[in-house]
Amino acid sequence: MSARPAPAVVRPSLVSLVALVAIFLSAPWPPLQAVFHVALVLGLAPLETVPLLAGLWAVAAGWVMEGTLRMVPHPGGAAWADLTLALTVLFFNRFWPPDRRLIWWGRLAGFTLLHALLLHLAVALASGPHPWGRGWLWALLTSPLWAMLAWRLKPTTHPR
């Protein structure tokens, strides 16, 4: 168990809200938007102690991102992929909580790649062919930053 004091329960929610607003505001810069998007879906939303909240944060992130893009004819695929990955990360955090930062970061980096694949697959299913871009690469490169932020916000009551 970590010796540092447990963060406030509402702190992840507040940071998630900031990230959601950042997704909306960073729409003109897709790489930056991708970083905020992945950080919210994989890093911040699964920190919620209430699973429903985690799912809602992930769905909101997907809809806000696709809504700001205004490029897909049938939005909803990103929200579905986000919900799937956020619940998966939540499940892993609950039942196999990492006890070291390196494991935490490595797992999130892996989920980042998986998220990119699933996201583009879902968007392709929903809207058809679309440009991939390099947002996933920026999200992967910045994963140490947002992963560590999530580590610091992570509640300490999770079972090991």
Binding site: L52, H74, G77, A79, W80, L83, A122, L125
Partner: peptide, 17 residues
């Protein structure tokens, strides 16, 4: 609720394709 949310989103995404 989460299951319905996930299933609904999935069906919605499939309906686009």
């Amino acid at each position: 609720i989460l299951s319905l949310l996930w299933l609904g989103h999935g069906l919605w995404a499939m309906s686009g394709r």
